[in-house]
Design a protein around this nucleic acid. Structure first.
Lengths: 132, 132
DNA sequence: CTATTTGCAAACGCTTTGCCTGATT
DNA sequence: AATCAGGCAAAGCGTTTGCAAATAG
């Protein structure tokens, strides 16, 4: 229960670097930054702490779960649902809202070309399994 | 100009497997499937052709551009904009629409827990660079 | 004290690439 | 015939992990 709760200087430094920036950095960027303060910190420690901090709810990891790419034979824009249990990806039958791009473009300085909307949860199949 | 356009039996088989399924498979899944038809095909060929086919516009790759994870010191749900030129990730100041989850849940059999919306395009900084 | 954490380096897993042979146009 | 594509295996690259030493509580 009281696991992973030591606030080491490494963990603290990593958290501070992340809280002090809004660039959504990569692990390596964080590593370089923290090295200014703790020169002999190792990249492994950075990764370990990022995972711990995310479990603690202090930070968010912006990866997409699975490490491997998926391929789609339908090269149109459409939205997806991804099951967090079986990792399956399903097409959603709701229309692609191109107007969303315009909405952002009109309210920011960004030039918006595309967007991507993905839902996460449990697919019907895994719901059944769970109730066993 | 006329590069990468030969329709070899490997390329054809890979494309057919992808067009015939809706499971959004991984490269390895495709590899296993194509092996039933071309037993000595290599995984490298599958990857090469998936990239070629995606350049041809025949398929879509559902990765997320950059291969590495990004970390966010603000663990709230919020939407992001990603610049396809500098790879920078920016927060968007539009509210997170939890109602979207319900909308999907009410119209499908999925149990929806979360969603993610990401916009892609060119950030102001890179727009300037481009006009030089 | 002692369980957690670190640094280091090796291992991992998915993907890409170099090289040479084989196939396509 | 000339060029593109394939097979194989090694390399790449971000990330994870095993281990002994260090350290927080």
């Amino acid at each position: 229960m009281s696991k992973n709760t030591r606030m080491t200087k490494q963990r603290k430094a990593i958290l501070e670097v992340l809280k002090d920036t809004d660039v959504h950095p990569t692990a390596d960027w964080i590593y370089e930054k923290v090295k200014e303060e703790i020169p002999n910190i190792s990249l492994g420690t950075v990764y370990r702490n990022l995972n711990v901090l995310s479990e603690m709810g202090e930070i968010m990891i912006l990866d997409y779960g699975s490490t491997y790419s998926r391929f789609d034979g339908v090269p149109n824009n459409h939205y997806h649902f991804q099951c967090t249990e079986c990792e399956g990806v399903f097409d959603l039958d709701i229309p692609h809202k191109d107007s969303l791009n315009d909405k952002i473009e009109n309210n920011t300085e960004f030039e918006v070309k595309d967007h991507r909307l993905e839902f996460y949860g449990i697919c019907p199949n895994c719901q059944e399994q769970d109730s066993n």
